[in-house]
Amino acid sequence: MQPYDGPLLAATDLARSFGPHRVLRGVSLTVAAGETLLVAGPNGAGKTTLLRILAGLMRPAAGEVRVRGRRLAHGDPDARRPIGLVSHQSLLYDDLTLAENLAFAARLYGIARPAEAARRALAAAGLADRAGATPRQLSRGLLQRAAIARALLHEPGVLLLDEPFTGLDARASAAFRDLLRARAGEGRALVIVTHQLAEAWELASRVAVLAGGRFALERPRAGELAAFLPRYAEACAG
């Protein structure tokens, strides 16, 4: 991939409604290489909607998203290539084994030797011994690890993570945090949407609070989480 100097992810004035309910009212953000933006907010604040728009899965009513400077649009499927998404769902086929699922995903991204890439990704996620299992045979935590393996398979430059620590036990959470820290260290841009602030706090370089369809607060992360919580509560209350 060509080097790129600008922000890896930039969104401008994103707006989106569901019927009469305005979920996003002009959200803008930029995430540079090596940065991790932590987006927090109350239930229904629009965090998942924001992440789906950033991933190109949902069209904003207004505003635009640029990934490595390229606008996300139907006509430019390659603009989606640098995006990796860990969502509420694993994005896996229930009838395929994990190895088959990841090999299929590798083919979608044009990765050479997809079966080998799938094996590597599963081994990195600690799922080498589950390669022959189907998603329905996995526990919630193992399925989340498989989803993470799928998201990281093509070495995305922009990682979007929606409640990524859900279902992971303490050891898997710690390992995943280390992995995300390493990815940010390699110059990738990360956006983490979570309620579990404690899990993601140390990873974040910036923190934003989404409330009332806007960023009620956005600032660099500094200090302890405990000191931030009163500000967080205040921002959520509007």
């Binding site: 899965l57 998404l85 769902q89 694993s90 994005l91 896996l92 086929y93 229930d94 979608l108």
Partner: peptide
């Protein structure tokens, strides 16, 4: 499991 999202991504 949202496999359709995987295709669309």
């Amino acid at each position: 499991h949202g496999a359709l999202d995987g295709l669309l991504l």
